[in-house]
Design a protein around this nucleic acid. Structure first.
Lengths: 96, 96
DNA sequence: GTAAACAAGTTTATATTATAAACCAAATAT
DNA sequence: ATATTTGGTTTATAATATAAACTTGTTTAC
């Protein structure tokens, strides 16, 4: 009746990150930080977790001379996200 | 852009409990336990939290000679639940 | 009738998670 | 040149979820 929710996605900040990345080709650290309002430390940790899970990839480069960390959702990430959304529906259906 | 998610509801088991209670007049402990597959200990703790928050009420009685704990969603609980669902939509919209 | 197993929870201990504070290196502004 | 800002990472702490162990009473089997 209630499917297990992917614990990697069932987290406010990680979910927001995935939500952003699902809608764009790629986004860099500072952009995500601004959109989510997260602290840099927290965001860094959560991005690591998503990366370890294979849900996103991270590329480190420079924008001018400044370091720039660019994130991108992977196909597996996209898949996991849509499965999570699907699973959540079971939980939310009563709440309208 | 990403509204804060009520941390009391952003929990797999508590959300399941609320989801069940949103759809019925009342439900007792063992029923919820079966539906969710939770352990009694975990369920007991989460029900306490929902009660402290005023999201549900708990009435202790007997069914025959056996103790029986009956739970019911409150108007505030229902309201919080529907607000949570609304907030979540912001996070999920990209995931279709 | 009493010992063993079961029902319905609660309490407590542990493992996991989220989060921010402290830190670092390089770039820019003063 | 030095103070400040940018773009992060590491680490320490606080909060959370979860299950194991326990309690209280009830049925069942002997």
């Amino acid at each position: 009746m209630f499917p297990k929710l992917d614990p990697l996605l069932h987290s406010e900040l990680r979910l927001a990150v995935m939500s952003i990345l699902a809608g764009v080709d790629s986004a860099d650290f500072t952009f995500i930080k601004k959109q989510t309002g997260a602290t840099a430390g927290n965001l860094s940790v959560q991005i690591d977790k998503l990366t370890s899970a294979g849900y996103i990839t991270v590329e480190k480069g420079f924008k001018g001379k400044m370091p720039c960390t660019t994130c991108k959702i992977t196909p597996e990430g996209r898949d996991a996200f849509s499965k999570y959304v699907e699973a959540l529906r079971e939980y939310l259906s009563a709440g309208n």
